[in-house]
Design a protein around this nucleic acid. Structure first.
Length: 410
DNA sequence: CGTGCCGGGGG
DNA sequence: CCCCCGGCACG
């Protein structure tokens, strides 16, 4: 994973200046075509936003040209597309038309969904959970104190939370959730801070429950009381039945902090759970850099083996995920600070929104250690695909030279 | 067959 | 250097 941003990114931000008129024979031609096609009047390139320095966030949303335009104000608009009038119009390949509602606060939501898609949490967790607003969600309140469904007096000492209590979409059965995922995604500070501790948790497998407690006895009591309808008065007569309804969770907390970087791909056959009903991913955006990292994370955080009766076997259809992903945008930071590239003092951040495959199910990771000789073909959309053969002038230089694409890095 | 891009070649 | 393209491996 290369962290270094290869040079020559500057181009994207460069202003479509006189564009070395003598050079590049195709550009002027193509440009004219492009502009003509849209009935646009060639306008002089817009100057760099004065003093905006780092301010420029630029979004290029692949979508219908006429569709909603969203461009962050104060950008070097027009640069991405290059050669575009300063209007808010975004350069667009005009291939797919996702509703252009790309907001940054949705970015986190996407992250959540991306990773959740491999976990059962998505079934139970309502949209509210994805709200960027911390602390106000009901699930958190439930965290602080056990919800009403559960007589709080019984909670002697064990801590836990009931995620199912917040369920707003009862339509789907809700297998237990990998709490780590939840914690990570929801940013529970308590767990995030601890590193390298492995804690055993107990998770209720009862349909639509998913409660997690810290002690087995607490969990047994929970099951007895809540699900088996035993009386609290009854002594701890454990006939063992409860054991069927909860499972142990090995919670490697360090995964939360370190996991992002050093999670190793998990062999799909080994620890991936029986698979869960597929979640319909709403159209959301992924944050830059995150998605790729979250996927493995989600994979690794997949819930433990579950009673087979709880979660009916069901295959996660990759096709479907693919389709969903197609309509989904992914934020990808294309170039940080433009490297000082031969004097082009562009210092804006260029963000490109591209539609890409959100691998909702188990991502196809380099499963074999062999890392078979050849680098796997990057499945990202590249300039060619994004802009199309005509509009080649919009491609990044590398793409035009038939080199490795620099705009849509793998 | 389309695509990504390496390697090589021309100006 | 910049620019292009043959050709090949992927999918």
């Amino acid at each position: 994973m290369e962290t270094e941003r290869p040079p020559a990114q500057g181009r994207a931000c460069e202003h479509p200046p006189p564009r070395a008129a003598a050079r590049d024979p195709i550009a002027p031609r193509a440009e004219a075509r492009w502009q003509h096609a849209e009935g646009r009047v060639p306008a002089p390139p817009q100057g760099q936003l004065a003093g905006s320095g780092f301010a420029g966030l630029e979004f290029a949303v692949p979508q219908e040209p006429q569709a909603a335009n969203l461009v962050t104000p104060g950008t070097c608009a027009g640069a991405a597309a290059g050669r575009r009038p300063p209007s808010a119009q975004i350069p667009v390949p005009a291939q797919r038309a996702p509703p252009g509602k790309a907001r940054l606060d949705e970015v986190m939501a996407a992250a959540a969904l991306t990773s959740l898609s491999t976990s059962p949490l998505c079934l139970g967790a309502p949209a509210a959970a994805f709200s960027p607003e911390p602390g106000l969600e009901p699930w958190k309140e439930g965290l602080a104190r056990p919800p009403g469904s559960y007589s709080s007096s019984t909670n002697s000492g064990d801590w836990g939370w009931d995620l199912a209590s917040d369920q707003s979409s009862p339509s789907t059965p809700s297998p237990p959730l990998p709490l780590e995922t939840a914690h990570f995604l929801f940013g529970d500070p308590t767990l995030r801070k601890r590193k390298s501790s492995v804690r055993v948790m107990f998770q209720c497998l009862w349909k639509s429950c998913g409660k997690v407690l810290s002690t087995a006895s607490g969990m047994q009591r929970h099951i007895r009381l809540v699900h088996l309808g035993r009386r609290q008065a009854e002594p701890e007569q454990s006939d063992g039945e409860e054991d069927f309804y909860y499972t142990e969770l090995d919670v490697g907390v360090d995964v939360l902090t370190d996991g992002l970087s050093n999670l190793t791909p998990v062999s799909p056959t080994a620890s991936v759970p029986p698979a869960f009903p597929h979640l319909e991913l709403p159209e959301l955006l992924n944050p830059p850099a995150l998605p790729r990292l979250l996927q493995p994370l989600a994979l690794a955080l997949a819930p433990p083996p579950v009673l087979s009766s709880v979660a009916p076997p069901q295959v996660c259809h990759r096709d479907h995920a693919y389709q969903v992903g197609e309509a989904t945008g992914v934020w990808e930071q294309v170039s940080g600070h433009c490297r000082d590239e031969r004097g082009s003092g562009c210092s804006s951040v260029h963000l490109e929104l591209r539609a890409t495959e959100v691998q909702a199910c188990a991502p196809a990771l380099p499963s074999k250690l062999g890392t078979s000789l050849r680098k796997p073909r990057g499945d990202a959309k590249k300039c060619r695909k994004v802009y199309g053969m005509d509009h080649r002038d919009l491609w990044c230089t590398a793409c035009r030279w038939k080199k490795a694409c620099q705009r849509f890095l793998d």
